[in-house]
Design a protein around this nucleic acid. Structure first.
Lengths: 227, 227
DNA sequence: CGCCCGCATACTGTATGCTAAATCCGACGA
DNA sequence: TCGTCGGATTTAGCATACAGTATGCGGGCG
């Protein structure tokens, strides 16, 4: 056949690998540096510096900084510059409160909308987390934990809720990481019970378990924060 | 004293009346145009056009558009341009769900942290709303309604919560306005009961009332949306 | 007559130059 | 010694210029 030209149709979802706008790459890069601690809280970020560091012009850096400001990762002082946001204990506490609220509701909805496949995916992530826990592979534990929560919020079917919960959770994780690496096995036992409740479609139980789960995290935060 | 030149000192909280960055003005201007409907959903926003319209260069416009994208007021198509976001019924529904969640929690916390002055302020706003209702002054009714909710979320003492609730509420109002101007007297009766619960410090009651109140709004939305 | 290719156009993406303002530091005076 | 003033420097804010790419249209071929 001629296969004249027509629609490549890139079978799978995405077209042909569009070049991601530079500002997004820059945004990710800076955020990464903030989360890993390479850029410490309070640090003065200079556009020109970042631009040179990343090998781009100031323009994309500016736009990335605007995004970061919107997400509260940096504070922008007009006329001066950007500073990595310094979380206050009060703010961390409020954030934890909001997270509890959002995640509990997510769990409730997830229980109502749970599917076989969804639950299977949850269990798989759970296994990954537990295995990493046994192997003392902290990084994987943390990432599995994050993914599990993401999956649950996604399963809620409410995109707005999922988006908010995701943002809040990411900030919480950043605040939380330095004080408490993880609560270990107990946390994963709670996960197991939670998944069970979702699988059974018991919305109230799921919400309650998630609420308790995130509250435990909050308590562990408050304990450690007393240093 | 000499008052040689120095600081005008703009008495109240903020420093000295800093000249607001242009991008913020532009942001407000565009948002205003979106909310009032001057820029209809789906409309293609051209940077150059907006820049000329507002008498500034493309740069501040770009930054304002990035902010608007973050707040989901516009959709940004890489390589093409910005479009005023078109709300889907599904999205509106999810947004209403999240709003209920956030506002109910705000009311609960507000009840726990209520002060004499705060309650007095609420009552004042309430009076303003009721008076405007009688006078058929729709604009004032709407603004009083918005202010009342804002005051309650502020009273919760949780800034994060307040910020999220504010954003969500503004979008809800935009979606909602075209279909249902207001629910009238009944809505304000509910407000009265809610303020009462907050004044008494009855957190559970306040949360329940707020939940019912916002759910009523949701129902009225769904009814009208069937056109 | 319909489809497809190729070109012209318009817009965004990115880079850079210029201006105004905020900060910092040193010197002067009380 | 401390407070204050003034200048130098740094930095963001804003404007403009250039390049890459998506889009839409018109002409030509089947």
């Amino acid at each position: 056949m001629s296969l004249p030209s027509n629609v490549p149709q890139a079978a799978s979802g995405r077209q042909v690998a569009r070049p991601v706008p530079l500002r997004e790459t820059v945004y990710d890069a800076i955020l990464e540096m903030i989360i890993t601690g390479e850029l410490a809280p309070g640090r003065h970020l200079v556009e020109k510096e970042l631009a040179e560091m990343l090998g781009v012009s100031r323009q994309p850096v500016r736009e990335a900084l605007q995004w970061l400001k919107k997400d509260e990762w940096v504070d922008l002082r007009p006329g001066y510059g950007a500073f990595v946001h310094s979380p206050t204990p009060e703010e961390a506490d409020q954030l934890l409160g909001v997270r509890t609220l959002l995640e509990a509701e997510s769990a409730r909805l997830a229980a109502l909308h749970s599917t076989k496949e969804g639950v299977a995916a949850l269990k798989q992530t759970y296994k990954r987390g537990v295995a990493a826990l046994k192997a003392d592979d902290i990084d994987t534990v943390v990432s599995a934990n994050a993914e599990l929560h993401t999956q649950i919020t996604a399963m809620s079917g409410n995109k707005i809720l999922g988006e908010l919960a995701g943002q809040v959770a990411r900030r919480v994780r950043w605040y939380h990481t330095p004080v408490a690496k993880s609560r270990g096995k107990k946390s994963w036992d709670e996960h197991a019970a939670l998944i069970d409740a979702i699988a059974k479609g018991d919305a109230d139980l799921a919400a309650r378990l998630m609420r308790e789960h995130t509250e435990h995290t909050r308590e562990s935060y408050l304990e450690r924060a007393e240093d």
